Structures are given as structure tokens and as C-alpha cells.
Computed example of a mutant assay.
Amino acid sequence: MTTATPDEIRTAVRDRYADAARAASTGDGPTAYTRSLYPEEQRDQLPEQALTASLGCGNPTLLAQLQPGQTVLDLGSGGGIDVLLSARRVGATGKAYGLDMTEEMLELARRNAAEAKVPNVEFLNGQIEAIPLPDASVDVIISNCVINLSADKDAVFAEAFRVLRPGGRLAISDIVLTRALPEPASRVMALWTGCVAGALVADDYRHKLCAAGFTAVELQPTQVFHRDAVREVLADADPGRIPGDIDIEEVTRALAGNVTSSFVRAVKPIA
């Protein structure tokens, strides 16, 4: 039995999203699902490449209830789609940060911000387990199908809690499981980069947020992924990177109906 290390997972994730950024830059990439997540009035505000580069599972900007003057941080900001939308909502007196570890995505996001003529944004190079911002400097944290990609979610939630101001809110879209994955699934790298193998069971998600200090934790499933969606993730896998003892059909059956896209809300209490 072979289990991927955190460094191997991080490298695979970075490679996958670098490829996605390059594809978006040439006008190629998955847009149909993204378009279904963002209403037309939001899509009209965005450069085409911001839509094309998005690999999210929800629309956290609808969840966040942003107000003018707030500071927003997007964990794993990719091509910048949610940062740009958030920046418009917080206005000229607010600020929207995007944090990403993939240089290709950061370059694309900065080009998208320039094309959209949105000045109150800043894209940061770094990891979500070590956010490069001061304590208590952010009002709202958003994220779109990224926290599941981290091999150290306790560090992610601790860092999110640190940089939020008292009363600040976490408002994210993420992949959440209804039950634990079968062991073989954790050894398929395509399920890590496809946002499945690293996902938490709902009760574990709540526990980790509470352990980090958050209150008012809510998880709201918005979509259940069935067999065809799981097969689509596995179809992108390099067969040479799937351990030979794994029965892919058995894994697919175990995942079908177990994987959900969910809204996750939590609050940093006021001391």
C-alpha cells in the first residue's frame, strides 16, 4: 500500500492547476459547469479567461454577503474569478486579496484584473496553510473547492482564524463527504487533484472548524455528485499513476452519491 506524502500532493495539485491556467490562456478549458454556478449578471463582469480558468464547485460570492469597505481573502484564488467579483462588491474603500501557490494562475489572475479594470485587488503567492497576512486583518474569507486539496486542514483553519478579525466570517464552497472514503481512493492521485480524496466527512469538517475556534458552523449541501461525475474525474487520470491493485469501478461505486458540493459558514467570535 502506498500513500502520497503532503509534498507529493502539493506538487500534483500545483501541476494540475498550472495546466489549467495554461489552457485558459489559450481559450481552452472547462466552462460549462462554471457558467452554471455564476448568474449572467456576474458573468458579464468577468473576462472570459477568468471563467475558463475556474475549477470551483460553487459560488462563494453568493454566500459571503459582502459589504462596501470590507477586506476579503480568497484562499486558492486561481484565475481570480471570485476575487474580481468580491472586489466589485466591497467597492473602492474595500480590498480583495487572492492567495494561490501556482505562479501560472497568479499571472493569469493579474491579467484578468487588469482587463476587468478592478484596482482594489492584490494577488499573493503562498500556501493556504501559511497565509502571508497579519493577524486580524480580514473581514471575510472565501474559498472555492480548494481546502479539500490541502493535506493539513487543521493548519488551514488555524490560519483562517488567525487572519480574521473578531466577528469575521468564513464563507466557502467545498467538497464534503457523507461518509469516509474507502482506503484505495486515497491512493489515486487523480482523486486528490480532482478534489475528492482529500475531502472531509461533514462531521469531521465541523469538528476541525470548532477546534480552530470558530462558532456558528453550518454545512449546507448544494449538489450531490453521482457516478458519471466521479468517472469524469477519474478519466483525467494517468493510468500509469493508478496503483495496479485498485479496482477503479469499485472505487467509483463507493464514491457515487457520497461526494457533495457544500456551502460552509463559520464565525470568529468577538472576544
Results as ranks from 00 to 15, higher is better:
residue 108 L to G: 11
residue 35 R to K: 12
residue 98 G to L: 08
residue 115 E to D: 15
residue 59 N to K: 04
residue 56 G to Q: 09
residue 123 F to R: 04
residue 55 L to S: 02
residue 89 R to C: 02
residue 39 P to Q: 11
residue 51 L to C: 03
residue 50 A to K: 05
residue 81 I to F: 10
residue 57 C to Y: 07
residue 65 Q to A: 08
residue 97 Y to V: 03
residue 83 V to E: 05
residue 90 V to Q: 14
residue 61 T to M: 02
residue 90 V to G: 09
residue 65 Q to C: 02
residue 83 V to Y: 12
residue 97 Y to G: 05
residue 111 R to T: 06
residue 31 T to E: 15
residue 56 G to H: 09
residue 102 T to R: 13
residue 120 N to A: 04
residue 34 T to V: 15
residue 62 L to D: 14
residue 109 A to R: 09
residue 54 S to D: 14
residue 123 F to D: 07
residue 100 D to H: 04
residue 44 D to P: 12
residue 41 E to Q: 10
residue 62 L to F: 08
residue 112 N to G: 02
residue 70 Q to F: 10
residue 63 L to E: 08
residue 29 G to L: 12
residue 54 S to P: 05
residue 117 K to Q: 15
residue 44 D to K: 13
residue 80 G to F: 13
residue 35 R to D: 04
residue 106 L to F: 11
residue 118 V to K: 01
residue 51 L to N: 05
residue 53 A to C: 03
residue 71 T to Y: 13
residue 76 G to Q: 12
residue 86 S to M: 03
residue 83 V to A: 06
residue 58 G to K: 10
residue 72 V to K: 10
residue 96 A to F: 01
residue 102 T to Q: 15
residue 100 D to R: 01
residue 109 A to T: 04
residue 68 P to G: 12
residue 53 A to R: 10
residue 49 Q to N: 09
residue 106 L to T: 12
residue 120 N to Q: 14
residue 47 P to Y: 01
residue 42 Q to Y: 08
residue 86 S to E: 00
residue 76 G to C: 07
residue 96 A to C: 04
residue 55 L to H: 01
residue 124 L to F: 13
residue 31 T to V: 15
residue 64 A to D: 09
residue 63 L to P: 03
residue 79 G to A: 14
residue 39 P to R: 06
residue 45 Q to T: 01
residue 75 L to R: 02
residue 62 L to T: 09
residue 104 E to D: 15
residue 78 G to F: 07
residue 117 K to D: 15
residue 43 R to Y: 00
residue 98 G to R: 14
residue 103 E to L: 08
residue 105 M to R: 08
residue 71 T to S: 10
residue 35 R to C: 00
residue 46 L to E: 01
residue 57 C to V: 15
residue 43 R to V: 11
residue 52 T to M: 12
residue 85 L to F: 01
residue 89 R to M: 11
residue 41 E to N: 11
residue 103 E to Y: 00
residue 90 V to M: 13
residue 109 A to Q: 02
residue 102 T to F: 12
residue 56 G to L: 09
residue 50 A to E: 05
residue 105 M to N: 07
residue 50 A to T: 08
residue 80 G to I: 04
residue 43 R to I: 14
residue 117 K to Y: 09
residue 31 T to H: 08
residue 96 A to H: 01
residue 84 L to Q: 07
residue 71 T to P: 04
residue 124 L to I: 04
residue 85 L to C: 07
residue 69 G to R: 03
residue 94 G to S: 05
residue 64 A to P: 09
residue 58 G to P: 04
residue 73 L to A: 06
residue 63 L to T: 14
residue 116 A to D: 10
residue 32 A to E: 11
residue 84 L to P: 01
residue 75 L to S: 02
residue 115 E to S: 07
residue 104 E to S: 15
residue 112 N to E: 03
residue 113 A to K: 03
residue 50 A to H: 10
residue 76 G to D: 11
residue 124 L to G: 01
residue 63 L to A: 12
residue 40 E to R: 11
residue 86 S to R: 00
residue 93 T to W: 00
residue 114 A to S: 15
residue 83 V to C: 06
residue 48 E to T: 14
residue 121 V to L: 07
residue 120 N to P: 03
residue 91 G to A: 00
residue 114 A to F: 15
residue 84 L to D: 02
residue 75 L to Y: 01
residue 30 P to F: 03
residue 115 E to Q: 14
residue 59 N to T: 03
